[in-house]
């Protein structure tokens, strides 16, 4: 009792046409365009003696 091959496309076609919401959702909320990571990758350290704390520039 397997369905006829000819009935399969018809069924699929019906399902697809019955769910048009997917296409509507995509057009309403488009996927955000990926952003390329950028920006400097550096950090600061402090080195030196502390003999005269009053030294300031």
């Amino acid at each position: 009792m397997t369905p006829k091959p000819s009935s399969m496309p018809q069924s699929i076609s019906t399902e697809r046409s019955g769910t048009p919401r997917v296409a509507d959702t995509k057009s309403a909320n488009p996927q955000p365009r990926p952003v390329k990571p950028a920006g400097s990758l550096t950090y600061t350290i402090t080195k030196g003696a502390n003999a005269f704390p009053s030294f300031k520039k």
Binding site: K36, T42, I45
Partner: peptide, 26 residues
């Protein structure tokens, strides 16, 4: 000599964890 050896701010490339994360993001 005290002025020459006093504390100063240096800059470094990194840190390594940030660079690794950047490579993964790229």
């Amino acid at each position: 000599l005290a002025a020459a050896t006093r504390k100063r701010r240096y800059q470094r490339v990194g840190p390594e964890t940030s660079q690794l994360r950047r490579a993964q993001d790229l």
